[in-house]
Design a protein around this nucleic acid. Structure first.
Lengths: 121, 121
DNA sequence: GCCACGATGAAAACTTCTTCTCAACTTGCT
DNA sequence: AGCAAGTTGAGAAGAAGTTTTCATCGTGGC
């Protein structure tokens, strides 16, 4: 049976509180404030579980290790700060998929904007 | 001094011939047709050198190891085939960078379209 | 053609990220 | 409270990609 432990509650809460995609390391750092003994292995195990149960989805970014964000949100893209490495959600999508050469079938797309976040600007 | 060897010539030629971004593994396979003894270490060393001298640029894609393509091309984006894993260049860019929340400064962006390439469709 | 020195290839080592192992600890049912 | 079983944390191990090592080979200047 799946148990509700301090660790798992802390990790869930962190995602609801910060409102941006997090890497396993970031999850560890933020959730450690709630459960100081927390270990990285538990973070990975919990992230895996939360993805399977549909609470989180992985976010892949160019040249970056995966982040995770709450699942079920509307189509959107991401902003990666080049200085602090934090990722933010961008609402909306301005991409018009024209220009596809003949024979190519698009099934989806990813847009990543790079730059400086408000804290680093 | 930088020497012109069979291996380096072969790797350069491969990029000019295939016209799409290549991973180190793909470079190895394609250049081996010209120089069968070619080893992966040489591919990595040569790619590094070709990037430094400005002939190639790295291409980062979400959740994928880097590819390399000839440098100096106009702004463009990429198509990743989910079946064969090959990457293609897409000409043009339809992205309008509105919707940036206040305080965020954009410096660049990446667009990746996922789907099936003509050979896999 | 000779030869110094850069380049090569195979394997080992390294990095970074992720998963596994296992003894100790918690949770939740009774 | 007592206990069975799931969970945790630390470190070891694993996976994937890249770099280094080193003996040997090849290039290019003389």
């Amino acid at each position: 049976m799946e148990r509700s432990t301090r660790q798992r509650r802390a990790i869930r809460e962190v995602f609801l509180e910060v409102g941006r995609p997090l890497s396993p390391q970031e999850v560890l750092e933020l959730a450690k404030r709630k459960v100081p003994s927390l270990g990285l292995a538990t973070v990975y195990r919990t992230l895996k579980g939360l993805v399977e149960e549909g609470f989180l989805t992985p976010v892949a970014l160019p040249g970056e290790p995966p982040r995770y964000e709450p699942a079920g949100r509307a189509h959107h893209h991401h902003f990666l700060c080049r200085l602090c490495g934090r990722v933010y959600e961008l609402l909306g999508c301005d991409l018009a998929l024209t220009h596809l050469p003949p024979g190519f079938q698009a099934e989806g797309h990813e847009v990543t904007v790079f730059g400086r976040c408000p804290e680093c600007a």
